[in-house]
Amino acid sequence: MIELNQYYTPESTSLALASMLDISNVRSCIELSAGEGALVGPLKASNKNIKFTTVDIDQSNSTKLANLYPNDVHICGDALDKNIGLKNDSFDLAICNPPFSYVDNSDKYSYLLTGKFGTLLSKNKRLRMEVLFILRNLQLLKPGGTLAVIVPDFILNSRPLLNFRRILFDRFELFNVVECGYGSFKKTEAKTYILFIKKVNKSKFSKVVPVISIVNGVLKKNSIDIENAIKTVEKVEPNSGYEIFRGCTSSKLCRESRRDFHHNYSGLENFSNVTYKVYSAELPKFKYAKFNDVLINRVGRSVGDTVILASSNVIVSDCVIVIRFHRASLREAFIENWTRDRADWIKLHVKGTCAKNISISSIKSYISTLGKVV
């Protein structure tokens, strides 16, 4: 098996995807990055008349699929190769679990980066593979066709892809979402979603999109206001009464300073005071926390753990978020509420494909809710 940051689809996710699709009139289906064909089986069980075309770069996967489904078309090659032999506007349905990773931008992908997508992404040095696979699948679909694609939380909720989502969901219809729990895929802690997108021209955003959450085998129904999410996701009003930032140097560089520094250490008691050796002068190229700052672990197994700096300035690594309050009432409100809410808040807001992390913008959003109690 070729390692391409590909997380093969577990049976529970495959069944969830298949159960959400109306495939009674589907006659053709494309699966790019098909892997071992976990998404094919459940659909074939529901409609034996579907003609599948699968593409995978791993010869062993293509051979396995050809043996399992000899009457379908199986291509071994790069699914994003324009000349692989696939025609645009040819398939009723597309299903996809793309690699969760970045790729260096090159002319190879220029055929995908057209129109507004090209204006937005063509000058980027690196591109998300999931974005490229979404665009390729939509090219291959017939007008009115449906794409069901598995993506990590980053694709649906991150600030860097805000404008991509705005263009995508302005042009095509997101009509259903399945939220999969953490650990749904082996070898990654990523929170994942299945997005169901219809290739239809749209003049405005859908107002409400149903969401089904799958956590420990339990289904919960919810909904998201996609217009509001696309326009305001992670948007926070300018700060009032505090500063927030993260360290700018790795733990390795902090260690090389030969000074004490604060890192995402595990084992520290939450909301305890921490102290470090005091030095007469600050070093350039490092960021420092100051007395009474709130220090929150941004990433790792101890993500969200929180302590208070009880000594003078100390270097902070890039794994730590620092909150410096300028209003005592806001600081007191934050500590009181964060003590109560932290554990549940982390479960709802932690992100990450390889390592769990929280964002500054999400903490800003939390602090903004405290204005009502200060």
Rank of each mutant, 00 (worst) to 15 (best):
K231N: 14
F175T: 05
R301E: 12
I315S: 06
A281H: 08
K347S: 14
M20Q: 15
K204M: 10
D305C: 11
F117K: 00
L138K: 00
T249W: 00
P284H: 03
L121N: 01
N222V: 07
T54C: 14
P210D: 03
R331F: 11
N297P: 07
G352A: 03
G183C: 06
T339F: 04
G300W: 07
E130R: 13
I308Y: 02
V299F: 05
C76G: 00
Q6C: 05
G85T: 02
K207R: 13
T146Y: 00
S361H: 09
D318I: 12
T232Q: 09
K252V: 15
G181A: 07
V373I: 13
I296Y: 02
C76Q: 05
C180T: 09
L195A: 05
I367H: 00
I84N: 09
V73L: 14
I367R: 00
S362K: 04
I230G: 00
V209Y: 04
V178L: 07
L112F: 02
V218D: 09
S28K: 10
S272Q: 08
N222G: 08
S24K: 15
F196Q: 06
V236F: 02
K207E: 15
V303M: 09
A343N: 13
T54A: 14
V215A: 07
K199L: 11
L135G: 01
E237W: 12
P210F: 01
F175L: 02
I214N: 10
L283T: 03
H262L: 08
G300T: 01
L120Y: 08
I224K: 11
E36P: 04
D104G: 13
G241K: 01
E336A: 10
L68S: 15
V215W: 03
T13L: 15
N49S: 15
I134S: 01
V218W: 03
R327S: 10
I155V: 13
R324P: 02
S28T: 14
F100A: 12
S365G: 05
